[in-house]
Computed example of a mutant assay.
Amino acid sequence: MSKLKIALCQMNVIDNKQENILKATSMINEAVSHNSNFVVLPEMFNCPYSNDKFIEYAEEEKTSPTLNSISKLARQHETYILAGSIPEKEDSKIYNTSYLFDKKGNIIAKHRKMHLFDVDVEGGIYFKESDTLTPGDKFSVCETEFGKVGMGICYDVRFSQLAHINVEKGASILFYPGAFNMTTGPAHWELLFRSRALDNQVFCVGVAPALNESASYHSYGHSIVVNPWGEVICQLDTREELKIVEIDLNEIEKVRNEIPILKNRRNDLYEIIEK
C-alpha cells in the first residue's frame, strides 16, 4: 500500500490530564471519520510542557490510563496511532516517550527522547529537560503495513545522525512529535523538517501542540509534512486544528532515482557506528 492518509492532531494541551485525553480522543475519532490510516498526536499531549508537570503527570507504561485509552481507540478504529509523547516513569526515572500502536491496539514501538532540550538562548528561552528527564538510548524503527517508520521527538530532529540511522534501517517516514517554542519555532522548525526530509529523501512529519498563551511554555504549533523533494506539502498555524494529509510513498523511489544521494554517499570515507 503506497498511499496513506496521515492525521495531524494539533491539539490544545491544558493542565488537566483527563481533559487532554478526552480532546485527543475527540480528534482521533474525527480523524478516523475522514478515513485516516495513521493518526499522530503531539509531544506531551497529556501534560503541560514544564518540568514540574512532567513529574506530576508521569505514568508507568503498564498502568498508564493515557496509553490504555489510546490502545482502545486504535483497536476500536483499526488504525495506527502514534501517541505523541507522555512523561513515562520507570523506577525512579522519567522519560519523554512516544508510543506507536498498531490496528489491534498493541504497542509495536516506543521511543524515548534521545537528545534532551537543554538550552539558554540569549533574549529568548531558557529550559533544561535534564533537570527532570532521563535521555533514551535506543533507535526506534518499526514495520507497519505501509513500510517502516522511524521515530524521534522534538529536539531529536536537530540531529541528522539519528535520521540517517533510522533511514539506513529502512524508514520511509520520519515522525517527530514536537513542541518548538516561539523563539526556535519561527527560526528553525520548517528548515529542520525540510532538511531531514531532503537529506534522506523520505517523508518527514512533525506534530505539535497548539499555542496556549495561558501556559508557561508557548508551543509554536505549525504541524508539518514535508515530502522527499524537501517541499512542504502541509503546514498549520498556531491554532488547534485537525488536518488530514495524503502522501504517496512511491514518491520516495522517484526522487531517489532522479538524485541518487543515498547511492552516492561515500561510506568508504565516513560512517556512523551504532553502539
Results as ranks from 00 to 15, higher is better:
M1S: 15
K3T: 14
A7H: 02
L8V: 04
L8E: 01
Q10Y: 04
V13A: 02
I14T: 12
I14F: 10
Q18H: 10
S26A: 15
V32C: 12
S33V: 02
S36A: 15
N37Y: 02
F38E: 05
V40D: 03
P42H: 03
E43N: 15
M44S: 12
F45K: 05
F45A: 04
N51K: 05
I55V: 15
Y57E: 01
E61D: 06
T63W: 00
S64T: 00
S69K: 07
I70G: 01
K72D: 08
K72H: 11
L73P: 06
R75A: 15
H77A: 06
I86R: 03
E90W: 10
E90F: 12
E90H: 11
K93E: 13
I94V: 08
Y95E: 04
T97A: 11
T97W: 01
L100M: 08
F101L: 04
D102A: 02
K104I: 14
R112S: 08
K113F: 01
H115Q: 13
D120S: 11
E122Y: 15
K128R: 10
T132C: 06
T134A: 05
G136H: 04
S140Q: 07
T144I: 10
E145L: 09
G147C: 02
G150H: 04
G150V: 00
M151V: 01
G152H: 04
G152V: 07
D156M: 08
R158Q: 13
R158L: 12
F159P: 05
S160M: 12
S160C: 09
L162N: 10
L162F: 14
A163E: 11
I165F: 10
I165Q: 13
A171E: 09
A171D: 09
S172F: 13
L174Q: 03
G178T: 06
M182A: 07
M182H: 12
T183H: 12
P186N: 03
H188C: 09
L191E: 15
L191H: 14
R196H: 02
C204H: 00
A210H: 02
L211W: 02
S216V: 13
Y217M: 07
Y217L: 05
Y217Q: 09
W229D: 13
G230V: 02
V232F: 02
K243W: 04
I244M: 01
I247F: 07
I247W: 05
N250M: 10
V255Q: 10
R256T: 03
I259E: 09
R265Q: 14
R265T: 07
R266K: 13
D268G: 08
I272A: 09
